[in-house]
């Protein structure tokens, strides 16, 4: 186990290093510089370039860049008057984190409920309706859903604030928009797992020894069905981050995703690269944690195949 964990962390570091190298290469390839302002004279630009070590050889710049990443220095934004990227990110990360966590919680709870009820009432209208909801939730892109929600609930019926991030009511629509996808994915997965567990012999045994149906469902079925659900949390979080980019943009949430989209449209490369690295680190760590967690919770799959399949 320890060897496996060390191996996985090694992979994580190599992958992150490759991503960092790719982003650095891209920065060299792409046009533009932080000092393109017409007010600056050539001499001033040279001074600024010296100040930010942009005249050093590429190899040295790369070492500085990698070193900077570990020190939390991601360079200087092109558009925000040379403010450091790290500072801009830290100002924006709060709302995104809140939005992400709220959506995960809401989506997971609703998804589990929907999946469990659908499995227990298999082939009834409740099951069919749940699964139709799930297919819609998986299929309809979050930005389409968010746009419609904003138009009807926010603009036409004026039930909730249309945009911005100023209080609990402002959270409702963005959280729903993001949670729908999470809910749908978990509901489908949970239903499958529940049906699988409900067909197992130990369920018959539990019923045969006279346990109440509540105990059977809660202690035996749901607990066993929950284990594999952990495996989809990794892809789900990645999907959620993808979602925040557009959802924050639509609802004008002052978060990292909105800023990322903004920096893409302004081609603010240091900002794009900084955020990219942050997202990559987040993804890599989440996937690692999910894999390790799964191995710990379910000893049956303990790394017989190095965690594959």
């Amino acid at each position: 186990m320890v060897r496996y964990i060390i191996g996985r962390i090694g992979y994580l570091i190599v992958t992150f290093f490759i991503i960092a190298a790719l982003t650095f290469m891209l920065m060299q390839l792409l046009p533009g510089s932080p000092f393109n302002s017409e007010k600056l004279t050539n001499e001033q630009i040279e001074i600024l370039k010296d100040q930010y070590h942009l005249n050093d050889p590429i190899a040295k710049q790369f070492i500085n860049y990698i070193g900077g990443i570990f020190k939390g220095d991601l360079g200087v934004s092109f558009t925000y008057d040379g403010r450091p990227v790290t500072k801009l990110i830290s100002e924006r990360i709060g709302p995104s984190a809140v939005l992400g966590i709220e959506s995960t919680i809401v989506g997971t709870i609703l998804g589990l409920l929907l999946g469990i009820i659908a499995a227990l009432r298999r082939n009834t209208y409740i099951d069919y309706i749940s699964m139709i909801v799930a297919v819609l939730g998986i299929s309809i892109p979050s930005f389409v859903f968010a746009g419609l929600l904003q138009y009807f609930v926010g603009v036409k019926w004026a039930l909730l604030p249309v945009a911005f991030w100023e209080g609990p009511l402002y959270h409702v629509m963005p959280v729903i928009s993001l949670a729908v996808g999470v809910m749908a994915t978990i509901a489908r997965f949970m239903r499958t797992e529940m049906l699988e567990v409900l067909g197992q012999d130990y369920m018959t045994t539990a019923k045969a020894k006279g346990l109440s149906s509540v105990t059977v469902v809660f202690k035996h079925a749901i607990r066993n069905a929950l284990i594999p659900v952990i495996t989809i949390l990794g892809p789900l979080v990645i999907g959620l981050v993808t979602g925040t980019l557009v959802i924050e943009h639509i609802f004008a949430v002052p978060g990292l995703g909105d800023q990322f989209v903004d920096s893409i449209s302004k081609r603010d490369y240091p900002m794009i690269m900084g955020t990219t690295l942050l997202y990559s680190a987040l993804f890599l760590i989440i996937i690692l944690v999910v894999d390790l967690l799964y191995g710990i919770i379910d000893p049956r799959i303990r790394l017989a195949s190095g965690g594959k399949d």
Binding site: T15, I19, L26, L29, Y269
Partner: peptide, 19 residues
């Protein structure tokens, strides 16, 4: 392939298209 899979799709796509 494992290293390529390790890089999140979204990130790879965005970098690629910017380039």
């Amino acid at each position: 392939m494992e290293i390529l899979i390790g890089i999140p799709n979204l990130i790879l796509m965005i970098l690629f298209i910017l380039w």
